[in-house]
Design a protein around this nucleic acid. Sequence first.
RNA 1: GGACCCGUAGCCUAGCCUGGAUAGGGCGCCAGCCUUCUACUCAGUCUGAGAAGAGAGCUGGAGAUCGUGGGUUCAAAUCCCAUCGGGUCCGCCA
Length: 591
Amino acid sequence: MAPSSSRKTADFKVVNFKVVDFKTEVLRLLKTKNVNADPSVLEIPPTPEMGDFAFPCFDLAKPFKKAPHLIARDLAEQLKPSAPIEKVAASGPYLNFFIDKTVMIQQILQQIHQQNEDYGLHPATQKVVVMEYPSPNTNKPLHLGHVRNILIGSSVSHLFKQAGHKVVQVNLNNDRGIHICKSMLAYQKWGGKELPEDKGIKSDHFVGKYYVLFSEKLKEYPELEQEAQQMLVQWEQGDKEVRKVWKLMNAWAYGGFEDTYEKLGVFFDKYYYESNFYDLAKKIVEQGVKKGVFEKDPDGSLFIDFANDPDEGLHHLGKKIVLRGDGTSIYITQDLHLAKQKYDDYKFDQSVIVTATEQNHHFQILFAILKKLGYVWADKQHHLSYGMVYLPHGKMKSREGTVVDADDLIENMQDLAKVEIRKRHPDLSEVALQKRAHMIGLGALKFFILKVDHQRDIHFNPEESISFEGETGPYVQYAHARICSILKKYGKKPLANVNYRLLKHEDEIDLAKLLGRFPELVLDGAKHYKPSLIAHYLIQVAQQFSKFYTNCQVLIDDHAVQEARILLCYCTKLVLANGLKLLGIEAPEEM
RNA sequence: GGACCCGUAGCCUAGCCUGGAUAGGGCGCCAGCCUUCUACUCAGUCUGAGAAGAGAGCUGGAGAUCGUGGGUUCAAAUCCCAUCGGGUCCGCCA
């Protein structure tokens, strides 16, 4: 059995920094002329020269009985801006607001400096979110699909935590069933007393080897299918010998999984085991029969038929068996139970399950059934699904052995990173090289996968991902390392009370404004389950930083300017590090 | 037969939920800038070529019928309908 995770969910720190909300100030000013608006209508103008916030006047056309551009023009004349709003100007149908740059930059940089690694963390909401992923089968090692699953699940968990929610990360081990018996049978027949350590193979790969062997031998001995079925019956009857092999091989699988989880930097708060509840699951179905949700087929199986449902929108879901005629449970039976179990355990406000899009239909039915069963929490479930991951040579296929193994992939990425690092640092020690290769290799992989919207298919390109240029993890990491190098040269602790008036170059202003948007990006990312928003934001920050750095020298003789720019660098570094952390990526001090 | 997802420059991608100002990035391509090194010519300077960048950086340019057709709207990449192309699913497998 896998050890239950020793890691506790992080405690929540109270965010108590008082921030001047510029949007509120803008709305307050508008209200002086009886214009009531919601913060969400305020836009950010396409270019900074046009202002900091824009209020579109289209909606006022009807009540004011005037053309939008005239309303904007008149309001611009009538409104009397006061600090921190400097100016109001009409631009066509838009009313643009200019905030005092010094005040704005000071607000942003001071907040970042004060909150430090908590910048981006929102006040606790008391909302409990259960994240379930990657829920592997224990008959083979984790593959490329699991990698995407894990990266999304883990990153969304981080986002929820930063948004102030309490997150419980759970992992269901699909540890029983015919597929498990297949690898067990193959091991019994052809494995001898062989142990993973004898062969020097990672233990989960060792298990996977016998799963593949089963498929191969099946061509020669078709009766194996029957034997595996027989083994499953024996397992259910508690046959000592079968259970012994089962425990042994599952332990090997778990050992390997833990290693892969650790390499990917993920931890779980709770493991569920299908074997613990597969036969309890039928109870929930029995209750459904009493409620009249499920019907009985002549052969004894239980089903639900949405085709006759009063809700026409559910008709396409069709008929679904929920319990076999012999009383044994199937996939959906167990998921019904697990959903309830998770609620009983955590009383969640939201439950998220991460799987590939091929299971969309399954979860539609699952959620529909839970609703029929009358659970109040049925609507609090979310299926977070993701598209395929393709490799340059084509789609991965588990049956044909072209599947890309997670461990191999990780190792490959590290090797690619090593080559890049060696090019630049021929004399770096082996230990340091290994450490950097891990940071950069994994950073490249994670960033490449997470920057793409989860619904899209990905064509993973290892060489492109590892590049230090373009929209890549290493590019963002590099920006971070560069700043660390500057701060090191500076040699002192960056101060928060600098002369903010000196940060007046447009690249300085743009960078500071961008940094100020991080907290809202965290909320957006959590709301939409989209780590990709963070990835794209980080690219923007890294680009803007490079631009600033090119045009504004930091380490210069003018102490006051130097201090101000150092603070800006320091805050940029914090945002990059905090953002990368949301993606599960390390921010290296040197590369 | 039905359901869902995707379609944005040669390639990859953001924006779509919640309609608004020139559809934002990246790769590749073209033209430049900064720094260093190497080699060559030369008295030296200028210039040329190549390589590189712990400032792996920056600037500019070319490149888009937002799959197509219709509708709603003052306004559509965004909403609605239809259609085409790609993918996934519709199992008493998981």
